[in-house]
């Protein structure tokens, strides 16, 4: 029986564990600690938790100062406000001086659901990926999230962790290995390569099953480390399979699909199909229904795969 855990819950748990291990870790939130799950840390370490109120830019500035003072701040709120509202303070005050600030942004993507377009960050990876010095991670499940949070706490420099609201399948076991800048190969294949991250990795794996039943074998890569991006692994599998599909709960402008397209266009131009939000805003609805409407499903990935594979040079 598959277990379901939201990546934001995994973040809250790992932050709590790290708080016990390292007294230099502090947490900030912008009045959403119950939703981002920094509330777990806040209850355990009230003297190291700072609610900044509904003031995201200020939260990033304070986080910069806390980092400059030798601490390791984790700053959390919804992704659209963390990456959007506070983008320029993040760029100038955190990334430019390469301060040790960890931005853990929850409620990313369409799967926010009923709150609708204003709260559904579909551009945050694009915004942060363009900022120098920034590491951008989009973990696929609770296990990978905990490893990514630990990596952020351990490795120096600014990090952006993209987390989701809904409970999603736990894909990995306790022996799963995660490394910033490395793409894990989850499944090998001969006919095409699927690169997915976040909550699109599970449908990508299901799509590979659908395709296998049709006689198309797909390699599946975990594109959780959007920046730095593992170009070497992507190019290897693109050359080996001759077609690539990307899948992300994000705009096809500027995110994982764009990162892959840039690398492939320069290094191995093969047919590419990008599954994601096609340059639009979201809307209100139940998460599953929204994902289905916008084609972010196993069948959507499989359809893109058939199209990319069909365009391969014979």
């Amino acid at each position: 029986m598959t277990e379901y855990i939201a990546t934001r819950d995994a973040y809250g748990q790992e932050l709590l564990a790290l708080g016990a291990e390292n007294p230099r870790i502090v947490a900030l939130d912008a009045d959403l600690s119950g939703s981002t799950k920094t509330s777990l840390f806040a209850r355990a370490y009230p003297e190291r938790f700072f609610n900044m109120g509904i003031a995201e830019q200020d939260m990033m500035g304070f986080a910069a100062g806390l980092a400059a003072g030798g601490l390791i701040p984790f700053a959390s709120t919804f992704a659209v406000f963390a990456a959007g509202r506070a983008l320029e303070p993040i760029r100038n005050t955190i990334a430019y001086p390469r301060l040790n600030v960890k931005i853990a942004a929850s409620h990313a993507g369409l799967s926010v659901g009923e709150d609708g377009a204003s709260h559904q960050a579909l551009e945050d990876v694009a915004w942060l990926r363009a900022v120098p010095h920034m590491t951008v991670l989009v973990p696929a499940d609770a296990v990978e999230t905990r490893l990514a949070v630990r990596a952020a706490a351990t490795e120096p420099g600014p990090f952006y962790l993209r987390l989701g609201r809904p409970a999603t399948p736990v894909l990995f076991g306790p022996d799963y290995r995660f490394a910033v800048g490395r793409m894990n190969v989850l499944r090998e294949g001969r006919d095409l390569t699927i690169v997915a991250n976040g909550l699109m990795l599970a449908p990508a794996l299901r799509a590979a099953e659908i395709l296998a039943a049709e006689g198309l074998t797909a390699a599946v890569l975990n594109g959780s480390s959007v920046k730095p991006f593992d170009a070497e692994t992507l190019l290897h599998w693109a050359a080996r399979t001759g077609a690539v599909v990307t899948a992300e709960e994000h705009s096809i402008v500027g995110g994982l699909g764009s990162a892959a397209a840039e690398i492939l266009a320069e290094g191995c131009p093969v047919p590419l199909a990008r599954v994601g939000i096609r340059d639009s805003f979201g809307e209100s609805g139940e998460p599953e229904a929204l994902l289905a409407k916008y084609g972010l499903t196993a069948e959507g990935v499989a359809a893109a795969a058939r199209s990319a594979a069909a365009r391969k040079l014979k």
Binding site: D58, A64, G65, A68, G69, G70, L71, T93
Partner: peptide, 16 residues
């Protein structure tokens, strides 16, 4: 942005 940075530095002194 400087006041927020300074505020964070001041808060860091308290924590540390």
């Amino acid at each position: 942005q400087g006041l927020a940075i300074a505020g964070g530095l001041a808060l860091a002194a308290r924590v540390a």
